[in-house]
Amino acid sequence: MGGLTVPLEHVLVLAALLFSFGLLGLMLRRNIIFMLMSLEVMLNAAALAFVAAGANWAQPDGQIVFLIILSVAAAEVAVGLGLVLQIQRRFKTLDMDTANRLRG
């Protein structure tokens, strides 16, 4: 029974750090590509936490959720990059602060 060789806490701390970096990136970067990448980081942080938890309790659910996240991330990237292309065409920039046409 494998379990986890590194303590679960370490992995979770790593995941939390990754998530925070992703979040910070999302909040601070203005380039949409970097924002998408930050999103990916956050997804992966969550996925890491799932995998670690699945390993810790020897349950397959962690990996299953990981797979789901993987596919969601793929889909998200596909849609996201499509949007990026459109934004680039419309606004001639990838700076999301200038693309604020929805301002009230």
């Binding site: 924002m35 999301m96 602060d97 301002r103 009230g104």
Partner: peptide, 14 residues
């Protein structure tokens, strides 16, 4: 209230 809606993605996320 409408001042809150800046149209900036980062602001929403934050």
């Amino acid at each position: 209230l409408s001042a809150l809606q800046t149209g900036e993605l980062r602001w929403y996320a934050t």
